[in-house]
Computed example of a mutant assay.
Amino acid sequence: MPTALITGASAGLGAEFARELARRQADLILVARTAGALEDVAAELRSEFGVAVEVLVADLSVTDDVQRVAERLGDASDPVHLLINNAGFGLPLQFADNDIDDEVRHLRVHVEASMRLMHAALGSMRGRGGRIINVASVAGFISRSTYSACKSWLIGFSRWANVEYASDRVSVTAVCPGFTHTTFHERMGLAPGHEGIPGLLWLDARDVVRAGLRDAAQGKAVSIPSLRYKAIVALASLLPSSVTSGVARRGRV
């Protein structure tokens, strides 16, 4: 059976990726920093789908924990076929108002950990083949603080790596959803229904995951799993940063 390693797998899009892949009979390695929630997801998937689920508790803002996950990705005796870099979090304030240590931790999880895990995965996948999915955001196409900058890095790197490693039979895809119904906003302290975002702009997590997996299977470098968000991204590319950043401050994608 193919094996997928998913970070941030205890909730949100990570848990939805795990569920969809288990439905397709993939074995799983689930990574998150909360042991109890991770074990609950693993037990549910083992029971419902009969797949093998390995649990790896790790805080991806901690270098030693990232190294443990990287070592698992590099284990040639039990190879990983799909890496999904999904772990991440948002910060409640603008850059100058957030604690700088929180901003550094945010950067480590979104960029440094993803980069280290991609490096480890590529070392194992090159030649035999594999896929990497980086969960980015449409925020990566607009100007908005460090969250936008982190997601922009993931998109840009995925575009390059997808071309660079195609000859090694490895695809790299940045999945870029818009506002999606998960626990992401609640963990930032925003109550459901109070994000100031029209209902039309909200996406279903299962739809995002299925579209992302389909686009990754087709070897696409960037996946925007919604026609309306594809239109928004196209429009944003034509507008000055002063306009898009002002709109972006209304909510967090």
Rank of each mutant, 00 (worst) to 15 (best):
M1G: 12
G8H: 12
A9Q: 08
E16Y: 01
E16Q: 14
F17H: 13
F17Y: 15
A18E: 08
R19G: 05
R19E: 15
Q25G: 07
A37F: 03
E44C: 02
L45P: 11
S47I: 00
S47F: 03
V53K: 05
D59Q: 03
L60Y: 06
S61Y: 01
T63S: 13
V66T: 14
V66G: 04
Q67V: 15
L73A: 13
D75C: 06
A76C: 02
D78Y: 01
D78C: 05
P79L: 06
V80L: 06
L82S: 04
I84E: 13
N86S: 10
A87R: 09
G88S: 07
A96M: 01
D97Y: 02
D97M: 05
D101K: 06
H106S: 07
H106V: 07
L107V: 14
V109L: 13
V109K: 04
H110P: 12
S114Y: 13
R116I: 09
M118H: 11
A120Q: 03
A121F: 12
S124G: 14
G127T: 10
G130Q: 11
G130Y: 04
G130M: 09
G130H: 12
V135N: 15
V135R: 09
V135I: 15
V135T: 14
A136C: 02
A139V: 02
G140R: 05
R144E: 08
S145Y: 11
S145W: 12
T146Q: 09
T146A: 05
Y147V: 03
Y147C: 07
Y147E: 06
Y147K: 02
C150P: 05
K151N: 06
L154R: 09
L154H: 06
G156F: 01
S158K: 07
S158N: 08
S158R: 11
S158C: 08
R159E: 12
A161E: 08
A161R: 06
A161V: 07
V163F: 12
A166W: 04
S167G: 02
R169P: 03
V170Y: 12
V172P: 12
T173K: 11
T173N: 10
A174Y: 13
V175T: 08
V175Q: 05
F179A: 12
F179N: 03
F184W: 03
H185C: 01
E186P: 03
R187H: 10
R187N: 10
L190M: 11
L190G: 00
P192V: 14
G193I: 06
I197V: 14
I197T: 14
I197N: 02
I197H: 01
I197Q: 04
P198D: 08
D204E: 15
D207C: 07
R210Y: 04
A211F: 08
G212R: 03
D215T: 09
Q218G: 03
S223A: 11
I224R: 02
S226N: 10
L227P: 10
L227I: 07
L227Y: 02
L227N: 07
R228A: 09
K230F: 01
A234P: 01
L235N: 00
S237G: 15
S237F: 00
S237A: 14
P240M: 02
P240T: 06
S242D: 06
S242R: 10
S245F: 00
S245M: 10
S245D: 11
V247G: 01
A248V: 06
A248C: 05
R249V: 06
G251Y: 08
